[in-house]
Design a protein around this nucleic acid. Structure first.
Lengths: 112, 112
DNA sequence: TATTTTTACCTAAGTTTCCAATGTATTAAA
DNA sequence: TTTAATACATTGGAAACTTAGGTAAAAATA
């Protein structure tokens, strides 16, 4: 598991990117996808996920669609147009941040 | 300037690494070094720096030496042995985190 | 020489963002 | 039939920052 402090601030970017790649996803699906992609190294807890999803929805980056699966209501999230453009932006920000950190920490880019 | 959320959690690593490279530094010097190395893109505010330095000292990763410069007292920070081993550890953690993020975000490593 | 900027230390209040814990309920598997 | 997995969510508290403020010496500039 990664140091939780490092993960802070990247959750929004992760969510937006996953939605950009997969069209639409529901909350639980996102937690599983992150777990799978990271080989269990990064775990998004529900206490972090749902407030973030609601925040992104309030900021008009996501919209929701409810779907009835048996007796359950599943809530799908999808990027708005604003959301789509902010994905690129945030990934760019993350890349730049990593570049800066590599410079400061004097790390070898080949390490990745 | 980088998104402040991303910077969170990396400050300790930055401080420890700078001290590992420079032997000893004082607070103000650290803020300037980070600014220089990052071309102004990453600014460590004093409100973030000093509490962090004191925390690291309390955790026995740093020790201080006071030096009189004219009428002023300058406080130098230096790594303890524990501090030295934790630098490697934390940089490793950061690298692993970046690797995971690159996987999740499907980024090209060559980008750095 | 007077004033501003830079150097240099620091704290306190407030915000954001997360984690841990808890709650509810359906569906699938053991 | 009981446990695990699925699926939504909230709440309280901790951590780490930002903003703002305080003090004062030394250097640069007007």
């Amino acid at each position: 598991m990664h140091s939780p402090e490092l993960v802070k601030g990247t959750l929004q970017t992760i969510i937006l990117k996953l939605l950009a790649d997969n069209g639409r996803m529901y909350g639980y699906e996102i937690t599983q996808k992150v777990r799978d992609l990271s080989d269990g190294k990064l775990v998004v807890t529900e206490g972090a996920l749902y407030p973030t999803l609601h925040r992104l929805e309030a900021e008009n980056l996501l919209i929701t669609e409810k779907e009835h699966i048996g007796k359950r209501v599943r809530k799908y999230y999808r990027l708005t147009e604003t959301g789509k453009s902010s994905v690129t932006e945030r990934i760019g920000e993350f890349e730049n941040f990593v570049k800066t950190m590599f410079t400061i920490l004097n790390l070898n880019p080949g390490m990745i």
